[in-house]
Design a binder for these strands. Structure first.
Lengths: 239, 239
DNA sequence: CCGACGACACTTGTATACAAGTGCGCAATC
DNA sequence: GATTGCGCACTTGTATACAAGTGTCGTCGG
């Protein structure tokens, strides 16, 4: 039942088969498949074959193949011994590893950001924390502002490699997050943790900034792990 | 002059055009180009076009294209605004960033290795350090054993994500190392640093293991940076 | 002599055609 | 009835063909 995903966005021949067409094609296929894998529409272990994707999306095998290779480089799909690919399995133990890596990378970015931040930047970070505090009770607002905070730090860090590698695993983080979201276990507020990061940066203490950010991510990891635990076969509530 | 690299391994038509042919083709092209970029045969900023590579390697554009995409995912080539690709430029400031990231990742791996190492593993690491000490005067032996040490730790860590991301930047590390090798500045011995890592693992102190490994990489970074400094336009002694 | 216009050659992106290898299912036989 | 052999359908990997966009070079006009 998990073999054939439901990419039934449109028929084979008809015009825009779910992808915007004015984009570069391969990129569009990549974005589409990536989204479906992250949100669970494409179930873990689902086999993806070029001909059926090609037919369902209304493009030739060439862009499909390219998209598949991109996803493979990102490890969102894994290569089968025979040469095909399937959606990467979800493994709770693996989630921990993803967060471990993320903690180090974001920690490094926080350090770099600390070393480059101008007074204006510090003020902006403080404003974001205050804003986050203000919307404390509205969960999605907190999430939105939180993402903005992390984005701001990443931008400040101006660390091409840290960002690149972070981007590499972001898909997987989002994937586990999407899964955890279904087993909602009350979100704890990370406002104080963010404030700790902002304060460390304001104090011009790179080591403290790195440590604070790392601790923050590790706490998120523990939370996510808790949500995921008991998921057993992670495919339980997936289509 | 930098537009056409010297992939003249063989003519267009003739049999094995420098690539082993029994490999998957695209993979062979990828390996070949990757090696040439790392060792400097393909100069930074050199433009790579599918038709000429295709002709010079004696394969069609399809595998060449695939190899190029792989290299792009690894950031060994960068996309031009027009769509083509060129060999990623060498930037000393960037080298520092690469090593920063590597320090965190290898630090994490050392921690994980520490948490999983059996007494046998600890003994093996100690043996490697002793061996390294023994061959202290033979530079390439030191390098070889050192690589083995790092590989052992990575294997022990059994951290898929750490390894994957480390692999992502390894090409760049090797590239800067190859460049630094030409401006040889006496290698300092890292034997003691390795011993510190091994000792921390033997003491079952994950935090110390991580810190020791990170410090070790950061010292390597400083060394590499020193070698690279003054390189100015990094393409000076490149073909 | 300098600037602008036009055509060309070149590039990538996509589609299709071809070849080879592999696993699966069916059928016939022991 | 179980097993083994054959044949088919399917897959990926590669090659080639086609279309569109873009930069450049040459030439013509001011």
């Amino acid at each position: 039942m998990t073999t054939t995903p439901d990419l039934r966005a449109a028929g084979p021949a008809p015009g825009d088969a779910g992808l915007t067409r004015r984009q570069s094609g391969a990129r569009a296929v990549y974005d589409l498949l990536r989204g479906r894998i992250i949100d669970g529409t494409l179930a873990p272990d689902a086999r993806l074959t070029e001909p059926v994707l090609s037919a369902e999306l209304g493009v030739s095998r060439t862009p499909v193949r390219e998209a598949l290779r991109l996803l493979q480089a990102e490890a969102l799909v894994v290569e089968l011994p025979t040469g095909g690919v399937r959606v990467a399995p979800l493994d709770v133990a693996d989630a921990r590893r993803v967060y471990d890596v993320r903690a180090r990378l974001e920690g490094l970015l926080a350090r770099d950001a600390c070393e480059r931040a101008t007074p204006d930047d510090v003020a902006r970070l403080a404003r974001l924390v205050a804003l986050m505090d203000a919307v404390r009770d509205h969960e999605d607002e907190v999430l939105r502002v939180g993402a903005q905070f992390h984005g701001e730090i990443e931008a400040l860090a101006d660390n091409r490699w840290g960002s690149a590698l972070l981007r590499q695993i972001r898909g997987h983080v989002d994937r586990y997050r999407a899964l955890a979201a279904r087993r909602r276990v009350g979100t704890t507020d990370h406002v104080d943790e963010h404030r700790a990061v902002a304060d460390a940066i304001a104090s011009r203490d790179p080591g403290a900034a790195e440590a604070a950010m790392r601790a923050h991510i590790e706490r998120s990891a523990a939370l996510a792990e808790q949500s995921l635990r008991g998921a057993g076969s992670a495919t339980d509530d997936l289509p």
